[in-house]
Amino acid sequence: MKRIAIGLYAAATVALLVWGYYQAIFVAPDEATMHEVQRIFYYHVPSAMSAFLFFAVSLVGSIGFLASRRNYPEHAQRFDAWALAGAEVGVVFCSVVLVTGPIWGRRAWGIWWTWDARLTTTLILWLIYVSYLLLRRFAAGPQVQTLAAVLGIFGAIDVPIVYMANRWWRTQHPAPVFFGGPDSGIKDPRMLAAFGWNVLAWIAWGVLILGIRYYVERQSQKALAREALEALNQV
């Protein structure tokens, strides 16, 4: 039963992705100044939103792990798996943002990269979470979960500071499309629809791979626990 549900969800996600692609390429109208290259926006922004969402999942997992590691070790293991899965999937989406952004910027601004508030924040966010994944790979043994959780919290605290620092420094990125002032917001309903479908599709896709990553991590946690138990039994 569970298998069927997961299969259905995966199929629905792929269908959503195809539908979102169709909306973005064939339905949404051409933008007046940027023309075709503006369609990158339909992949770029939903990926950025998903990345932030999954980094938030990772932060919740880190805090949950630290809070529960003494009294509820079983819960703590789950939290840790969420923290790792969130960070890894977030890094994947963040990579998409960092790759599609310059491609768009080259056509729209004429430059690949600029040290602007949001670009720099995203890049540093990516660096922080890559360093988080590196720590998990380098540090061995049972303390790695605790150390990674601490680093995850540090990274999350750093993000608003980075953002403020760069905002004071310089800003070139277009103002936020939503909640960015009186002129913001997408006017054309077909563009809005294409954008909305892609947000939905990419978040659904992200949740799917988050679930797979979580499952794989849980399996490896169980395998480790089992190995430890068998080693104990042999003594």
Partner: peptide, 9 residues
């Protein structure tokens, strides 16, 4: 550029 962005994604 659009093709590149989508395919890379």
């Amino acid at each position: 550029f659009l093709v590149a962005a989508y395919v890379l994604t």
